[in-house]
């Protein structure tokens, strides 16, 4: 029984690993993540890859929306920009996937900053509408800039290679995804402890007050957009190499909404929340798929899966917003505290 946390320095309070236990458990968990692909089947690895890729995207959106308080309904557009940049660089320019990833991130970041410029004048609802506009404009560009994106036909992308080793199966690709997820999580977790991260949180909590204590809103809002879109670009780039194809249909408004749902269900303003949210939102449709499987062959219910998924999706968003606005991260914290403090209630 460990009763309560006692921290006597600020450094301890700020530490990434709050206690020795955390370090031990995290090492065990990392070990598990490294070993498990050798025992899992292709389907599980496929899901693991999707979850990993979603986690990176959710981290990006959570930094922007959860930590800086800037609502973005255009996250899919940034992911799309990353995906297309990567696909075009790999297939036309012929540079390797490993260079294409940071380039895709940078390209998205530049686009993100441009989209973020209106955030200097507008916020809240208005910003949400501005980002929706960006989303529609980019969807249009992906579809109609034939010369670059090949329009509706899309671009086929080869598997990534490293020193002649081809990442062509789900299992091999898993390690790429894992690397980026760990790196992205680590960066996000550290970022919010620094001056920059604290500035983000200050802007979210009260922008005027933040400006009064010397935070340059112009710089930090754009920085937040840049970092968030960088994550999105990396997400897009990974996704495109995993799926081997990119078409304009892959980045609709519903994808942006799905990412927002991940962040909300997981927990706004919590790095762990992005992970839980991505995990949860990728698995829910799969579970539903199994759930609707038995009735799939009855003619009336043939197309039941897509609408049921939509209803469940919407209900989850509404449910969490009304009953658990701080998301899965908060539920997890409560459950953990219960066991940590048991049998006392405080």
């Amino acid at each position: 029984m460990r009763c309560g946390d006692f921290k006597d320095t600020y450094n301890k309070d700020e530490a990434v690993f709050q206690s020795v236990f955390v370090k031990i458990w995290l090492s065990i968990f990392m070990l598990f993540l490294l070993v498990f692909p050798f025992f899992a089947n292709e389907y599980i690895l496929y899901m693991a890859n999707l979850i990993g890729i979603a986690i990176i995207g959710a981290h990006g959106l959570n930094l922007l929306t959860g930590f800086t308080g800037q609502i973005s309904l255009g996250h899919a557009a940034f992911i799309g920009v990353g995906a297309y940049t990567s696909a075009i660089l790999v297939t036309r320019v012929g540079i390797s996937f490993w260079w294409a990833i940071p380039m895709a991130g940078l390209m998205s970041a530049v686009v993100g900053v441009i989209i973020g410029i209106p955030s200097l004048r507008i916020k809240g609802l208005y910003l949400a509408i501005a980002t929706i506009a960006a989303q529609f404009i980019f969807e249009y560009v992906f579809l109609n800039w034939e010369a670059m994106t090949h329009g509706i036909r899309g671009i086929n992308v080869p598997d990534p290679k490293l020193f002649g080793f081809q990442f062509d199966t789900e299992r091999k690709f898993y390690f790429i995804t894992l690397f980026f997820v760990v790196a992205g999580t680590f960066y996000a977790r550290n970022l919010i402890r620094t001056r920059v991260g604290r500035a983000f949180i200050a802007i979210r909590d009260r922008d005027l007050a933040a400006e009064l204590i010397g935070i340059n809103l112009f710089r930090y809002k754009l920085l937040s957009f840049a970092i968030s879109s960088f994550y999105a670009g990396v997400t897009g780039s990974l996704w495109v190499s995993f799926m081997n194809i990119v078409t304009p249909e892959h980045f609709p408004l519903s994808l942006s909404i799905e990412y927002l749902a991940m962040v909300i269900v997981g927990g706004l303003g919590s790095v762990l929340g992005s992970i839980y949210g991505a995990f949860f939102m990728v698995l829910v449709p799969e579970i539903l798929k199994f759930g609707t499987d038995p009735i799939k062959n009855i003619p009336v219910f043939q197309h039941i899966f897509a609408p049921v998924r939509e209803v469940v999706f919407g209900s989850l968003i509404v449910f969490f917003l009304i009953f658990e606005p701080r998301g899965l991260a908060e539920i997890w914290r409560r459950v953990k505290n219960f066991f940590v403090l048991w049998p006392f209630t405080y």
């Binding site: 927002l260 749902a261 706004l268 209803v311 919407g314 968003i317 606005p325």
Partner: peptide, 21 residues
């Protein structure tokens, strides 16, 4: 604001799905 926006978006998803069903 984000909660209110998202709740209407969630609502739209529910209504769309129901209409589809």
């Amino acid at each position: 604001v984000i909660s209110v926006i998202m709740v209407t978006i969630g609502l739209s998803s529910i209504l769309k799905g129901l209409a589809h069903i």
